[in-house]
Design a binder for these strands. Structure first.
Lengths: 190, 190
DNA sequence: GCAAGTAAGACAGCTTCGTTGACTTGCCTC
DNA sequence: GAGGCAAGTCAACGAAGCTGTCTTACTTGC
């Protein structure tokens, strides 16, 4: 889902913009172990889009101020939470090409937000980490989103959060799920 | 969160790329009506990113085949589920500028996927809808994502889905929530 | 009936962020 | 020492955002 953009809504007014009800047989009679009517799935698509759009958008003010883009934010986010990350690991997380990353990462290094250090075991690698300024910026960006996250979790309540995680986990590709496991049976080597 | 991109992961290998544990006081003792430790929130950010990235990516094969992009998909999606949508309503949903939309929408009209018709009550408006070809394409795109959605919902189970919705709803801006209400107390006028 | 405001679209130009392919350098592993 | 992987670089391109200004057609309110 391409990044929802950053325009100020030209007409935010009042819209009664709910999705039209789908004209299907009203619950295919017996089909429903789970209410997987198409309309439900489409609603999920909408909600994921809106949530992503708005959570993302919450950090824009900070980014604009510094002349950075959302791509920079993503890099700061991942480098921040996974210090010693290598370039190719980062590429795999973001799922973009080396060239796309190079521009963004280069800018962050040039501005003194990110550090590179040759890997100790494998000196071809560049292990990435945040500088002090990088940590500070990442924190500002995080804070900008934090309120929204906290409010959503708190309003929804504990069991809802548990369900939220379960579903999101199922939406991810199987080989990515290991990155967000609750139980940290981590082993030493990378 | 800018659109996750469409590159083939250059090195998808094996990474033990979990986020590093945050060194904080291990659960601020009594603070937790809800486990809102920072680490939990960061995990949510990761999961939302990955889920969005992968759900979005599921439709790419179809889009590539037709030389369309994710922006086209978003337009087809919203026009498909909200027939008679006006241009400014669509702008409000996508949160992009008129010019950005014009390019994408223009392409879809030129290729015969989307129709415009002057509004009956207000003839300045152009109400959008899908042509037969547009409906067919939108369906193909939907099917490409459906499997993933169904699997996630089914694995997670009913209560989890309910929680998933509650949290997503809380992440959205308040004035967008009305668009995804379960109870349709819709009124006639738009 | 006219003025003001709104919906849509067009033109011009820019930026960000994605893409490809080819090539180099350094380093590890066998 | 050969082969292969990690990283970086150059060149060129394309998609999809953004800005601001302007026109046209239409509605609405006075």
């Amino acid at each position: 889902m391409p990044t929802p953009a950053r325009a100020t809504p030209p007409s935010r007014s009042d819209p009664a913009l709910r999705p039209a009800p789908v004209e299907t047989a009203p619950n295919p009679a017996g089909a429903g172990l789970l209410f997987l009517r198409e309309e439900q799935l489409r609603l999920a698509q909408d909600m994921i889009f809106f949530a992503y759009r708005d959570l993302t958008g919450a950090a824009d003010a900070v980014l604009d101020e510094l002349g950075l883009g959302r791509a920079h934010h993503r890099v700061l986010h991942f480098v921040g939470s996974r210090p010693e990350l290598t370039v190719s690991e980062l590429l795999g997380l973001l799922r973009i090409t080396k060239q796309s990353l190079a521009r963004v990462l280069g800018a962050l290094i040039a501005r003194g937000y990110v550090l590179q250090a040759r890997g100790a075991r494998d000196r071809r690698q560049r292990r990435l980490s945040l500088t002090e300024a990088g940590r500070a910026l990442e924190r500002r960006l995080f804070e900008a989103q934090r309120e929204r996250l906290v409010a959503a979790y708190r309003e929804a309540g504990g069991p809802a959060v548990e369900g939220f995680r379960r579903v999101l986990r199922g939406l991810m590709e199987t080989d990515t799920r290991g990155l967000v496991e609750p139980e940290p049976n981590r082993d030493a080597r990378r």
